[in-house]
Simulated scan of single mutants.
Amino acid sequence: RHGTGMASVIAGRGHGAGNQDGVLGVAPEARILPVRVILEDNDPQRERARTEKAGALADGIRWAADHGADVISMSLGDDSESAHPEPREDAAVQYALGKGIPVVASAGNGGLKGNHVSYPAAYPGVIAATAVTHLGVRARFSTRHWYATVSAPGDAIVMAGTGDSYLSGWGTSPAAAFVSGAIALIRAAHPDLSPAQIRRLLTSTAQDAPQGGRDDDYGAGLIDPAAALKAAATLKPDPQKPVPAAYAHRYFGPGPTPDDDPAGPTDWLPWTAAALGLTLLTAALYFWRTRP
């Protein structure tokens, strides 16, 4: 149900005459590439899967990046007291960014529970969404932290459920879905913009910017998809292409990093350097032993 609801916020197409019934998402012509990385809350295997499949999120990010995703939306996170960064997840996020794919995550729902740092929202480069109410003020549950990028609607959000049902939900999850829908619109019109450019578009065009330009409650302010899309038309693609994160091997597809040429001209460098160092060390010992 959670994934279905988030998908409807991003790409709901409505139904009936003129699509006026049902849920109309932010980017109704977007296509969803669902990647399951966690089980439902009531699944008895959820805790076991969480411990045994600790790399599922990292693998899912890489899989999406290698299978055509234009934006990776993660309405999930760990903001428990034991939450900590996972190197595999961080590397996967950098892998996606290196392929030119913006990565979005919910900032966390720990506003009433200590505001613990939430991952993946806190990984470098992630666009973290906080939640506001219909009055435009921070929802009490929304985590306030240094990594907040922008805010979006996240309280009493009507979403599609499974079958013919509807949900009224809350959380930074629908806020992240709203931001991802906005990015889908931008990428559809301007596919060559980099993740850094899209991030700047969202923050520079946000409404109700806090004093000083940002704060931990709202990030840079309330996202304005129409203003961001209009501003995107004035940009040229960033000449500095994203640099893929270094990684020992690949997951699911070729990715952006070229294979090392086993017969390349640099293969001799490490061995030459080692041999030269050993020669110098031997010479140094000889002179030290024979000095007067």
Score class of each variant (00 low, 15 high):
H2E: 13
H2L: 10
G3W: 08
R13D: 11
R13K: 15
A17M: 12
G25D: 02
P28R: 03
E29L: 09
I32P: 04
V35C: 07
V35P: 05
E40Q: 14
D41Y: 11
Q45C: 04
L57R: 03
L57D: 01
W63H: 03
D66I: 03
H67K: 06
G68C: 10
G68V: 07
A69G: 01
A69Q: 02
A69V: 03
A69K: 00
M74R: 10
M74P: 08
G77D: 09
D78F: 03
S80I: 03
S80Q: 05
E81N: 08
P87A: 14
E89V: 15
D90V: 08
A96L: 05
K99C: 03
G100V: 04
I101Q: 00
V103M: 07
A105Q: 13
G111T: 03
N115S: 05
H116R: 14
V117K: 09
S118P: 02
S118R: 04
P124S: 10
P124E: 12
G125P: 00
I127G: 00
I127C: 00
A129G: 06
L135P: 01
F141G: 00
S151N: 07
S151Q: 08
P153T: 03
D155M: 05
A156Q: 14
M159I: 04
G161T: 00
G163I: 02
S165E: 00
S165W: 00
I186Q: 02
A188M: 06
H190A: 09
P191S: 12
D192C: 12
S194P: 04
R199I: 08
R200C: 10
R200T: 15
R200G: 12
L202V: 11
L202K: 09
S204F: 13
S204D: 15
A206I: 08
P210L: 13
G213E: 10
R214M: 06
R214Y: 07
D216Y: 02
D217Q: 11
A220L: 10
A220S: 15
I223S: 07
I223H: 06
D224G: 06
L229W: 03
K230R: 15
K230E: 15
A232D: 11
T234E: 12
P237N: 10
P237K: 08
P239V: 11
K241C: 09
Y247D: 15
H249T: 15
R250Q: 15
P254H: 14
G255M: 08
G255N: 04
P258G: 09
D259A: 15
D261F: 09
D261W: 07
D261M: 09
P262D: 12
T266Y: 14
L269R: 12
A274Q: 06
A275F: 13
L276K: 13
G277P: 01
T282S: 04
A283N: 01
A284I: 08
Y286S: 07
Y286E: 10
Y286L: 15
R291Q: 11
P292E: 11
